[in-house]
Every structure is written in C-alpha cells, then in structure tokens.
Design a binder for these strands. Sequence first.
DNA 1: GCCGTTTTCGGCCCGACTGTTTTCAGTCG
Length: 576
Amino acid sequence: MKNQEVAELLFEIADLLDLKGIEFKPRAYRKAAMNIQSLAEDVEKIYKKGGIKALEKIPGIGKSIAEKIAEYLDTGKLKYYEDLKKEMPIDVESLMNVPGLGPKRIKILYKKLGVKNISDLEKAAKKGLIRKLQGFDVKLEEEILHGIELAKKQKRMLLGYAIPLAEELVSELKKLKEVKRIVVAGSFRRRKETVGDLDILIISDNPMPVMEKFCSLPQAKEVIAKGKTKSVIRLYENNLEVDLRVVAERSFGSALQYFTGSKAHNIKLRQIAIKKGYKLSEYGLFRKKDGKYVAGKSEEEIYAKLGLQFVPPEMREDRGEIELALKRKLPKIVEEKDFKGDLHMHSKWSDGVNKIEELVKRGLEFGYKYIAISDHSKGLAIARGLNEKRLKQQIKEINLLQEKYPKIRIFKSLETNILPSGRIDMPNSALKDLDFVIAGVHWKFKQSKEEMTKRIMKAMENPYVRIISHPTGRIINERDAYEVDVEMLLEHSKNTGCFLEIDAFPNRLDLNDVNVKKAVELGLKLSIGSDSHNIAHMRYAKLGVYVARRGWARAKNILNTYSVKKLEKILCGGKK
DNA sequence: GCCGTTTTCGGCCCGACTGTTTTCAGTCG
C-alpha cells in the first residue's frame, strides 16, 4: 500500500511551495494528498490497472499531479520534488510542527540563519539569534524553544486515556451556573484512535466567568490564550492542549459541527453551502446575498438545510460519507446499545490480574449477555500461558462458575499463539473442549510480508481457530504493524469462516477503522474484544464499537451484537 | 494545480488570537 507514502510526498511538496510563497498550489497538493490518504484502494494498484487516466479520476487530482504520482511510482523518485528540495534543503515537515512557526517564518529562518532542521533551530534560539530577526522577538524565541521541547515528547494521546480526562474537565465546568450546555467536539467526538487536543464547546450568555474558571482549573499547567469566546490551556497530563469555545445558543449546532470536523469533511460541506447560495461558519448557516441567519441551533438542521442526511460524527472523515448523505444512502451503523458481550479477556490464570469470577461479575454489571475467557496458551511463557493440564483445570472452574451465574454465558476460549510456521502452539486434542479458539501473533514479528501473510492464513485454516486477535500487531505510538497483506486476510476470512478481531485495547485498536471499512465492504463479520488484563480494562470494549462505527460497520457486521444462541451457532464447535 | 447546476477562467473555508500594532500579518484549527 503506497497511499501514505505518496500522500506524504504531496504534503511535503505543499509545504515547500508554501515556503516559496506560492499561492493556491499548496492547497491543491494538500487536497490531493488528503484524498489519497483516505483512499480505500491502493493508489499503486489504481495506476497499474488504469494508468494516468485512472489517477485523474481521483478527486483533487488532475493531469499535473497524476503525472507526478506516476513518475514517483515508476521510478521511486520525483524530479519536481527533488528540484524543490535542492532549492530549499529544509526539513519543513518537522519545522512546521513547532508551534508558532509557519511557512513565512521558516523561510526567514532559513534565509537569514540557515536553519534547516529542528537542531539548527534549537541552536539558533539558544544563541539568541532569532530575537534579532525582523518580525521576531524575545517572546517568540522563547515560544520556539518551548515548542521544541514539547515536540520532542509530544505524542497524540490515546482516545481511551483521553476519555476519563475529558469527563473530568466536563464535570468541573458543568458546576458553573453560567454553563448551559457542554460537549467535547473535535477528533474526540469523532472517536479517532488518538486525539491531538480536546475541543470543548459551551453554550453561555455570560462567557467571562466560564473563561476565568477554565483558565484556573487545577489541571491546567499553563494558559496559552484567553479571550471572550476562545481560550486555550495546556494540561499537566501529557501536555495535552484543551481549547474552549463559548457560543450562543443559536450557534451551538454550527459550532459543534464545525469543531467536530474533520477538516476535510467541513471544507466539502462549506463548498456545498456556497453552491446553494449559503455561507457556513461556526456561527451558523447564512444566506450569501443578505447575510440572513438560516440555521445553526442544531447539527441536524444544518445538514438538513444543505440537503444531506445527518452524518454520525465517526463517519465525518471525507471517505465518501458526504456523497452518500446527499443521496440519502448512508448506512445505519452499529451503536453502543447493540453491544451484547466481550469476546476477548484474560484472567489470573495467565497474565491478567483478576479471577474469572470477578470478570463475570463485571460483565453482569455491564449488562452483558456473554463474555469469553481467553487466556494465553503455553507458547507465551512470559504470560504464564496455559498448558494442556492447566487448561483442563480452568475449563472445570468455568463450568462451575457457569452453573453459579446462569444469566451470563461464559464462553470457554483460549488465545493461542500462531507459530512462525503458521501452526498453533496447542494440539487440537486440547482445543476440542473449548467453545472457540482465538489465535494471534505474539512474537517473531519481523517476517517478510509473504511469510507473515501465509503464517496467519494457515492459522485461519485450523478447524478450531475462529478468531484472529489483533490481526496487524500494531501498538499505537510504539510499534508499527508487522508486514502483512490485510486484503488477503480479509479474503481468507470470507473463505475459511475464521473471523478477524477488532482488539479494543486503547493502544491497539486493531483492526483499525480503515481495515474495518474494507471488511465491511466485503460483507464480513468481525469480533470485538477488550483484551482486558484487568476488570478496569473491560470498559475499553466500547472503543471497539467506535472503531467499528468509524469503519461504517452495521450491527450485522459485528458478532458482539448477536444473541447467545446465534453466537453459539456461528462460533462454537469448530468450523462447520 | 484543480474544478465547474451561477464559471473552461477565476475563484479556491472561515474566523479567532497574538503581538505590536493604529489596520494587519502570521499562525492555528
């Protein structure tokens, strides 16, 4: 899949053109890059199948960019880019990430001080050279140094960790009588796997006390901006930035829509507004000719006025949802209330901290109809994986618990290891007493793409293996996915009846939203598992539902929405 | 550089905050 690579190249060209002070072209390149990023199909495949003409069919890509992509795919190089780079041998991408620096300032820093990268920048700032430049000052120099420090340690925060943090801020601010309504918008509301910041939106007729309170919250490490309608703070926790906007009631829907994003989704929406003779901003939808307010109280009325179906926040990524909403053909995606049970968790028997009974009780508290106990098997010694003998003992224990708790079905499962050969680390004779078997790759990640794909496909063929856990192995912010052909796994899922998992643990979310969307397009079913190692982790199962929603999954695509009876039929007793 | 039910030319999303500044440029989201 070359999409990310090509998109990054185009993004960098956009940055370099910005640096040259060229207008509008950067926007065109960024748009093209974003559209390639959100492409479900591999851009290289598109090119190989249909040539330059096929590339030009991608929105935002015309003759010129299509030719450049073709050149890059053919030769691995792009002369246009290399020439730009020769002219300005600057690491724009990382410099642009420093808060306070944009193209204009980066250009000045390069021309006057020869700053090409972050380390040059840091040296220049520490020597006090930057403050002397036209348009810079001591304050900006300090801000740059501060920004470098932050950029060094800043990683986007996992959604699973941002949720409790956001809830805490919201409950603090809610206490104010001036706060009429409060919602966290942004990528948080779109349930993206990580969030760069939090965007809080408040309705209030009297914003100043709200801003005062916000800027003096005990969680705030510093106040970055403070105004009548907008303030920004940075939290101690992970240096997370939090924006607060106060709006009037009649603008709440438009502000919520605007601050929820995504940027690409919003740009398209505004273009539709323009075509219909409107102007859309965070303050509302207005008639172009006389500026008359048309809508803005709710998101629903804005989408309706623009002739669109309401788009759930998780779908607002400009991955085709706007086009479908215009035709009123959006799918009805799975909801949290459809979720009936968790299909992957660990107990004390292997590397979890809780007894099975505690997991069962928590499952009951959540109103689950079933849970699956899926401890590690013996191949994972570090996790005290179960051997045949201990597995038998565990099965006995679960049978007893099942009698004690008849209201919840306790599935007997096991997360086995897929050995490099594709074999499973437990004999079939030990697996036959389980309801269903999960299998996953837990070590030897560095195989070739062909080997890894074959390895997992072979495991999928085992008659007892019904679910592949965390199919790509990525750990967000820590480890890339191993090389594997996900499309082939999806195809194989269709052929073998072995399901792929959405591992809902905050730093996994694997399969991710993009792969889920591909699975949904093939009509596949997926399973969601929290991969809990602690009863406190069980609440992460909902993250799996969010990923499913972001992948446009309907309830029928998610095994966890099925009743016990149906699930037993689908999952238990090996492959039919 | 891209695009077209107001356009094949002339537009390109829109507004807030900062800083030093008396009207705006740069950055950000």
